[in-house]
């Protein structure tokens, strides 16, 4: 399923959507950035509550297809801007990480 379809299916709020045709092939959740870098697969949807600027760098480096910020965790405008610059698809949702991952499992 591609980023756009998944975002619609999960009723996500888009923050940055530079490349919504990208395919999503797996899901990973976690907030410790090094842990995520060690474990997340390329082309994944990454669910996290970590919203600082390094989140965008990690998403870029692991080649995540999209990032979903769970529980509408507060995110600074410059982080959203960085996501746009770096081509990272970034969304938020009021759901928690468990609910998001459970919902995502129905589509992957």
């Amino acid at each position: 399923m591609n980023v756009y379809k998944l975002s619609e299916a999960l009723s996500l709020t888009p923050l940055a959507m530079p490349d919504v045709d990208r395919e999503v092939t797996s899901c990973y959740t976690g907030d410790l950035l090094s842990w995520v870098m060690g474990r997340a697969s390329a082309d994944c949807v990454w669910v996290t509550i970590m919203t600082n600027i390094n989140t965008v760098a990690v998403a870029t480096l692991v080649d995540a297809s999209m990032v979903i910020i769970a529980e509408n965790a507060e995110i600074a405008p410059e982080v959203v801007e960085r996501a746009r610059e770096k081509g990272v698809n970034l969304y938020t949702s009021p759901l928690d990480a468990y609910a998001l991952c459970a919902a995502i499992s129905r589509y992957l």
């Binding site: 907030d31 410790l32 950035l33 090094s34 870098m37 060690g38 600082n52 390094n54």
Partner: peptide, 16 residues
């Protein structure tokens, strides 16, 4: 608090 310091940096470097 920035999401680092999990003690995974050097192990990840070796792993990759």
């Amino acid at each position: 608090s920035l999401g680092f310091g999990a003690g995974m940096g050097l192990p990840n470097m070796k792993k990759y």
